[in-house]
Computed example of a mutant assay.
Amino acid sequence: MSIESHLAELERRHEALSREIDEALSHPSADTLELAAMKRRKLQLKDEIARLKVNKTIH
């Protein structure tokens, strides 16, 4: 998998997770632990995207 396609997949997953978090927040009975886990995964994706973009510009 090329770096570009990997970045595109990570960005797609980040956006999907963002929509999932927004949906969960719209429900008053949202599981706060699950919501926190989703936010952590979203942040991890964001960090990986940033790391790959930096590596891509260096090389």
Score class of each variant (00 low, 15 high):
Leu35Thr: 04
Ala8Met: 05
Glu20Met: 04
Leu7Phe: 01
Val54Phe: 12
Ala36Gln: 12
Ser29Cys: 03
Glu48His: 11
Leu17Ser: 08
Glu34Phe: 06
Asp31Gln: 03
Ile21Tyr: 00
Arg51Thr: 12
Ala30Val: 14
Ile3Glu: 08
Asp22His: 11
Glu20Gln: 14
Lys53Gly: 04
Leu10Pro: 08
Val54Asn: 07
Ser5Met: 07
Thr32Ala: 08
Lys39Asn: 12
Glu9Gly: 02
Ser18Gln: 15
His27Trp: 10
His14Phe: 13
Ala37Gln: 14
Ile21Gln: 02
Gln44Asp: 15
Lys42Asn: 12
Leu17Glu: 05
Leu43Gln: 14
His14Arg: 10
Glu9Asp: 09
Glu20Arg: 15
Ala50Cys: 09
Ala50Asn: 15
Met1Glu: 02
Glu15Thr: 12
Ser26Leu: 07
Thr32Glu: 12
Leu43Tyr: 10
Ala37Trp: 09
Ala30Asn: 08
His6Tyr: 05
Leu52Val: 03
Lys42Phe: 04
Ala37Gly: 06
Ser5Gly: 02
Asp47Gln: 11
Glu15Phe: 11
Ala16Trp: 06
Gln44Asn: 15
Leu33Ala: 13
Leu10Lys: 14
Leu35Val: 05
Arg51Met: 10
Thr57Val: 13
Leu43Trp: 09
Ser26Asn: 11
Arg13His: 09
Glu48Ile: 05
Leu25Met: 04
Asn55Leu: 12
Lys53Phe: 05
Thr32Arg: 10
Asp47Pro: 01
Ile49Asn: 03
Glu11Ala: 06
Val54Leu: 15
Ala30Thr: 10
Glu4Arg: 07
His27Lys: 14
His59Ile: 11
Ala30Pro: 04
His6Leu: 07
Ala16Ser: 12
Leu17Val: 02
Ser29Gly: 04
Glu9Tyr: 10
Leu25His: 03
Leu7His: 03
Met1Lys: 04
Ser5Tyr: 10
Lys42Pro: 07
Glu11His: 08
Ala36Asp: 14
Lys39Cys: 08
Met38Lys: 15
Glu23Trp: 12
Ser5Leu: 09
Ala24Pro: 00
Met38Val: 08
Glu23Asn: 10
Asp47His: 10
Leu17Phe: 05
Ile58Cys: 02
Arg19Trp: 01
Leu25Cys: 01
Ala36Gly: 05
Leu17Ile: 02
Ser18Asn: 13
Arg13Val: 09
Ser26Glu: 06
Leu10Met: 13
Asn55Trp: 02
Met38Ala: 15
Leu17Tyr: 05
Ile49Met: 08
Ser29His: 07
Glu20Val: 01
Thr32Pro: 04
Ser26Pro: 00
Leu45Cys: 07
Ser29Pro: 01
Glu34Cys: 02
